[in-house]
Write a protein that binds this DNA or RNA. Structure first.
Lengths: 185, 185
DNA sequence: CAAGGATATGCAATATATTGCATATGGAGA
DNA sequence: TCTCCATATGCAATATATTGCATATCCTTG
């Protein structure tokens, strides 16, 4: 249900091929929704059958042909309906948090290795996000509602990464030195 | 893959029925992994066939019979292996964040209503978590590694909720007053 | 007394996601 | 030149999750 709508959001922003969409799912909205190319192509097909998107075939001599998709009027209407519907409770599933929660059952070595790796990864991603934030803040003049929402979402992403980094640091301190945080979060 | 391991974690902590597990998925580990009872019963069946859990039938005169499950030695081994394996990248999917990201395409009324509702909900949950945190901090004496990990995970949950509350407040300020945050996150 | 919630388990159909494979070409680098 | 990567799309099998239904009883509340 939401993959469908995430795709509509992307196409509303800008038409493109399935391949394009797969790329765009790696930044921006990709912070909050991701999908593999197999899923995307399948979903585009379904959306096409339902008339929510349409495509134009671009034949290319060299590369494989491209299907350039765009959202249709019914697609826009369906998206708007979804955006205005009541949110259903989300189930959050994080295997990493389950592993941390139960880390006392495991040998420390491999767990600590993963924690280090994730600290690195998240630090790198945080730097990226911070750079994006800086460019938002540097922008002078009026901001559109759309840009503002992108910005506010980015801020959520930044705080989310910081939260992860803090967790990982606390878990590392716990596993290596037995140190337990003594002040409220 | 992870539902399986989440169940093993729960049963490692304490044996119980499918119904018990469904309840336990609402607190503690349920912050990070949730599952419906249908999924749980199905998974317990599979785990039983694989020999990772076993059950004892408790016949009850009044209520329906209960299957009291416990983890087996192979189950513990499988869980340990999983805990020590490399983490694969997680896909995070939040329909609510997609909706916020694209809120500029919707009428404000219904969106703001959902935001209010979620502010309420998250505030209530935060209070719960804070109470749990307080009781952790009040506990004197040595803490086991296990308790410490539960505590550290709880702290993550608290910060996560605060992050959501901040996002929702920022989105509300944006939609109602057009106010865009002017300081870094 | 009637209605609804908690306890307790499950099937079946559908929807959604993952994994593995397949195809085809241009360009970059070893 | 050979290999790998980016571009571009897709099928098929399997795995996982959701939705709707079904059953049965006790206890509480109106």
């Amino acid at each position: 249900m939401s993959l469908k709508n995430a795709i509509l959001v992307l196409l509303e922003g800008k038409p493109g091929t399935g391949y394009d969409l797969a790329q765009r799912f790696r930044g921006g909205i990709g912070q909050f929704w991701t999908a593999s190319h197999q899923q995307i192509y399948q979903e585009l097909k379904t959306l096409g059958q339902d008339g929510l998107v349409e495509f134009e075939l671009q034949e290319q001599a060299s590369r494989p042909d491209r299907k350039h998709y765009r959202i249709t009027a019914p697609g826009r209407a369906a998206l708007k309906d979804w955006l205005q519907a009541t949110w259903k409770p989300e189930r959050l599933n994080s295997a990493a948090l389950v592993r941390i929660y139960a880390a006392y059952l495991a040998d420390q070595g491999p767990v600590l290795a993963e924690i280090e790796r994730n600290l690195e990864e998240n630090r790198a991603k945080l730097d990226e996000y911070l750079a994006q934030e800086a460019s938002h803040l540097a922008r002078t003049g009026r901001t559109s509602r759309r840009q503002a929402l992108v910005y506010v979402s980015l801020r959520f992403g930044i705080r989310h990464l910081r939260n992860w980094l803090e967790l990982l640091a606390e878990v590392r301190a716990l596993l290596t030195e037995g140190r337990v945080p003594d002040r409220p979060a």
